[in-house]
Design a protein around this nucleic acid. Structure first.
Lengths: 339, 339
DNA sequence: CTGAAAGCGCTTACAG
DNA sequence: CTGAAAGCGCTTACAG
């Protein structure tokens, strides 16, 4: 069933049918009624592909995240789909797997798929190629909104958490508990959130006149496995840290795995605060203190920003910072007083 | 940059350019070379929308899952995107939120978006409307693959876990540990996995001549919150169960939350086995025994089945059952010997 | 208010 | 091996 069959059955031209289904107001009420009846009787649904080709844009947006299995991203993705659905947008999803090449492959399909806009968490803060691709996309009138991560030298709309503040408060708290030997597991510095969390760490240390020791700043890659190894490295130091701040939830898990395997008790033998809450641990009342934020809100806000840009293309790029909250549950403390 | 500009620059017709980019072999090598050079110089990428309109199908598949934040589904989704990417398919994602209406809304967009195929975990096993929509979709030549859940009276390809066996083994194990008062938190019976897990429970009880007590079979809705309440109901019974089997990971979390809040120790005061592993608990060596399966494999297999159907449309519908594994970590036991 | 016609950017029988 | 032309199903100036 296509538009010309409907036109024929309703005894009008395809132009008129098109006007009716697009709610144009230059069509006589009786005509509209007649057409609508035929449309309903035949359960006619216009072909979105043909429409897209004609108007040269779609109601499809693209989302490119590095790791959909990370609860932060699945939460943010949920927020995006929710907001998209309410506004009658469809969403394409691409998993970049923390791989710049893949990300760029996906970015190149934006044009051929005529996407209306994209939401991206770029893999590599320093990738000029990604930045150029994103700029090219914007130049062609397709708005880009970054989520959580941004990119050096770029001037894009972005929604992010108050990373530095979260880290600052977490580390300050550890200091208040009497710690000086505080480690940070950073994740690759390729991302801005990690950079800001690292800065929060350093500022907290500086403000409390605690010297920063290079061997306490280790670098993972956002994933669990490397954080596990980095934790082993930290704990093998001649003078191991007495507290650890981990920069994201997957790395928190890797760190916990090592400590658990070694029988090092969290909140007893070592103190710990992680960035991002971990539902399963909260549920069983495992005393992990965390910096938390609302993932799904971040997704909704990103979609909202995209819609705004779509409505007013020449609007200013904006930066939205969502609040974080330090939730203390006990792991920031130390029972053995060996600090 | 479109096909006719390329044709002009290369001094050939658009038909020839089309043949070149589609790897048709009826084009002279020299011509092909000349065209390819122009294509590359101009970084020409064909418009996928126009191609779709012309060939009346796309390289886009749709995925409709009830809850992307559930690690089972985000894992399966990861598998789907991975396999899709390798085969140059894009994926649309819809979150049905365990809501039949939303699911059906999405299903209706399949035609207008010219999807090549869809992968679905239907919300309601008994929804005739959903079944009819899926049948309509197949009738129009668009293959449907169900993942994890199926639908009554439908005849679709499906990939699922060996649910009954998993439940049977879990419950049998609890019985071996000496339990007779074993509860099951079922989730809505609207889904087949839950139905099969329930059957595994009953068969295990029957095989060991343990009478099944209605008050021990309670019904959640796949989500955490209701499982929490059902656990409270169970534990408030005059004769509360001594062991619990939970039918999915979200319900396991809800159940754990209640027990933890009440200070009921898992593996000490009560025994427990859940369906689906929970990474965060494994990492901290929380002794939860579970029935595990590979989520991402299920996603990959679903995509593989879809591709097969796309390649051979008249192929038989198939059912793929992926294996499950009972992983015992201690929560199946009971330290207080009050069984 | 309505229709005829061109156009969106491709593909593909058909003819040569 | 190659091109002219029709067609995919819409939208939208243009003319009336």
């Amino acid at each position: 069933m296509n538009i010309s069959e409907i036109a024929q059955k309703a005894g009008v031209s395809v132009a008129t049918v098109s006007r009716v289904i697009n709610h144009s107001n230059l069509v006589k009420p009786e005509t509209r009624e007649r057409v609508m009846r035929v449309v309903e009787e035949n359960e006619y649904v216009p072909n979105a592909i043909a429409r897209s080709l004609s108007v040269r844009s779609t109601s499809n947006i693209g989302v490119i995240f590095p790791d959909i299995e990370n609860p932060f991203f699945s939460g943010a993705f949920y927020g995006v789909t929710k907001a998209a659905e309410q506004n009658h947008y469809n969403v394409f999803f691409f998993n970049s797997d923390e791989n710049v090449q893949k990300e760029q492959e996906f970015l190149k399909t934006v044009f051929s798929n005529n996407l209306a806009g994209i939401i991206v968490s770029p893999v590599d803060h320093y990738s000029d190629t990604t930045r150029e691709l994103l700029e090219e996309i914007e130049k062609r009138g397709i708005p880009v909104v970054l989520l959580d991560r941004d990119i050096r030298g770029g001037k894009f709309s972005i929604v992010m958490a108050d990373n530095e503040k979260g880290a600052y408060e977490a580390v300050s708290r550890l200091i208040q508990e009497g710690h000086e030997r505080i480690a940070i597991i950073e994740g690759s510095t390729l991302t801005r959130p990690v950079y800001e969390r690292s800065r929060g760490y350093r500022r907290a240390m500086d403000d409390h006149d605690i010297p920063i020791r290079g061997e306490y700043m280790v670098r993972g890659d956002q994933k669990s496995e490397l954080a596990y190894q980095m934790t082993r490295q930290l704990m093998s130091l001649p003078e191991p840290p007495t507290a650890v701040f981990t920069c994201n939830n997957m790395m928190t898990l890797g760190c916990l795995r090592y400590l658990t395997e070694q029988g090092i008790m969290i909140g007893k033998d070592i103190s710990m605060i992680g960035f991002d809450d971990i539902e399963a641990l909260r549920v069983i009342d495992f005393k992990l203190s965390v910096v938390e934020r609302s993932e799904s809100d971040m997704g909704k806000i990103a979609m909202r920003m995209l819609l705004d840009r779509l409505a007013v293309p020449e609007a200013e790029r904006e930066t939205v910072v969502v609040p974080v909250k330090l939730v203390l549950r006990g792991s920031e403390k130390l029972q053995k007083k060996n600090v």
